[in-house]
């Protein structure tokens, strides 16, 4: 799909109905609405540091929708949309973002693993998880995410190397948003593409327009089918971080406003909306209705999260499968000394 919403019909995935494309647009819009709200809350001091997804919605929603019901997701720290799409209650998102682990406990059999902050360190987890799926014959495929910077990490390269040797059901999505905080893609590696890093591990690597939700969907769907047969895949989604690395960062210190403006023309949402409008599947009133719906959903989640009362005892009770006596002593002492009053 190009920037004007034109699709090459011959390349259109057969299973991608109009209904699903509307869902893609709605999901991408939810990710963006969530992102805007989170950024605003952070600026008001109501949540902690936040890593925006602005501009990367097609990569995340396209890859998520390409997976089946029982497939598993091992993200890094910027894939907030996965949690929303796979059913983590909105309030939990904000409980996490307000700084409480309690938000990271998903529903039973939740398919998305928690946020991993150390860049690239989630890749071996995804590979081990995929090994467990193969061992237990669960049929599930694991999809993991890493950024352009993450591909320089040892764990990424080790992980995909293990995946190749073990022939596990893994799709490794490289979310290349061009910037690892202040380091541009060209200074991250001399490799011409990030996808080609797959070749050294004996895996297939594919590069796709990460701002084209349909292309991402197609690439990841095909990859998941191969991965399920024990043929792990790497897909580089070429996208752009339109916003900040995190709320602690000012991109104008290291990149030009002109560059960002150029990428805004490739906005992944705009092109889908154009496509849908041309087909008569979307209009302004639907847009307004959706925006109202999302605002209510998000505001409700924020209100509930702000009403959440943390339990400091829970810090002690979730370190081991039991409370060792020495830790219990610390807990009792903390309660007795009453210094928890804030």
């Amino acid at each position: 799909m190009d920037e004007e919403g034109n699709v090459d019909a011959a390349l259109m995935p057969k299973d991608l109905t109009d209904e699903l494309i509307v869902k893609m647009y709605r999901d991408m819009s939810l990710a963006r609405a969530f992102d805007a709200k989170a950024l605003s809350l952070q600026r008001q001091g109501r949540i902690v540091t936040y890593a925006p997804t602005l501009g990367q919605e097609a990569t995340q929603i396209g890859s998520c929708m390409a997976m089946r019901e029982n497939d598993l997701f091992v993200p890094n720290f910027r894939q907030h949309s996965l949690y929303l799409l796979k059913g983590l209650p909105m309030e939990k998102m904000f409980i996490s973002l307000r700084g409480y682990e309690d938000g990271s406990k998903g529903p039973k059999d939740f398919k998305v693993f928690p946020v991993v902050v150390p860049v690239g360190s989630q890749v071996p987890h995804a590979v081990g998880l995929a090994y467990a799926q193969k061992y237990k014959k669960s049929n599930a495929v694991v999809v993991s995410y890493v950024g352009d910077g993450g591909t320089s990490e040892g764990d990424f390269n080790e992980g995909i190397n293990f995946a190749g040797v073990w022939k596990v059901p893994l799709v490794m999505v490289i979310e290349n948003n061009q910037w690892a905080i202040s380091i541009p893609r060209k200074n991250q590696t001399a490799a011409v593409t990030l996808a080609q890093k797959a070749f050294a591990a004996g895996l297939k690597g594919l590069q796709v327009d990460g701002n084209d939700v349909i292309a991402v969907y197609k690439a990841v769907s095909d990859a998941a089918k191969l991965a399920a047969t024990g043929d792990p895949q790497v897909i580089e989604c070429v996208t752009y971080r339109l916003g900040l690395h995190t709320t602690s960062d000012d991109p104008l210190k290291y990149r030009s406003a002109e560059e960002t403006e150029e990428w805004k023309k490739k906005d992944p949402l705009v092109r889908v909306r154009k496509y849908l409008a041309k087909k008569g599947l979307w209009d302004d009133s639907m847009e307004q209705k959706m925006a109202d719906e999302y605002r209510a959903l998000i505001d409700d989640g924020v209100a509930k999260a702000e009403a959440f009362k943390p339990d400091p005892n829970s810090m002690f009770e979730n370190i081991y499968s039991y409370i060792p006596e020495t830790l219990k002593d610390e807990e009792d002492d903390a309660i007795a000394s009453n210094y928890w009053q804030v």
């Binding site: 081990g128 998880l129 061992y135 237990k136 080790e158 190397n161 073990w166």
Partner: peptide
């Protein structure tokens, strides 16, 4: 399982296996 020579991923994949219900 004989692994490739990479200690971080021996531990890291074990974490993933454990999360996937194995006892590595």
């Amino acid at each position: 399982v004989d692994t490739p020579l990479a200690e971080s991923s021996i531990i890291g994949t074990s974490i993933g296996m454990a999360l996937g219900g194995l006892r590595p």
